Amino acid sequence: MNKVQLNAASLTPLQPVANLCASGSCPTVYSTGDPATVVVQGFAMTGDQAGIDVPEGEVLIRIPRDLLAEAVRNLS
Rank of each mutant, 00 (worst) to 15 (best):
V4Y: 14
V4G: 09
Q5S: 15
L6C: 14
L6V: 15
L6A: 15
L6E: 15
N7E: 15
N7T: 15
A8G: 07
A8Y: 13
A9M: 13
A9C: 13
S10G: 12
P13H: 00
P13G: 00
P13L: 00
L14A: 07
L14Y: 05
P16H: 01
P16G: 07
V17H: 10
A18W: 11
N19C: 05
N19Q: 01
N19L: 00
L20V: 08
L20P: 08
A22S: 06
S23L: 02
S23H: 04
S23A: 12
G24V: 01
G24Y: 01
G24N: 02
S25W: 07
S25Q: 01
S25F: 03
C26R: 07
P27L: 04
P27I: 05
P27G: 07
P27R: 05
T28K: 02
T28R: 04
V29E: 13
T32V: 01
G33S: 07
G33Y: 04
G33M: 03
D34C: 04
T37L: 03
V38A: 06
V39G: 03
V39E: 12
V39A: 11
V40Y: 09
Q41C: 11
Q41M: 12
Q41N: 15
Q41F: 10
G42E: 06
F43A: 13
A44W: 14
M45T: 12
M45A: 11
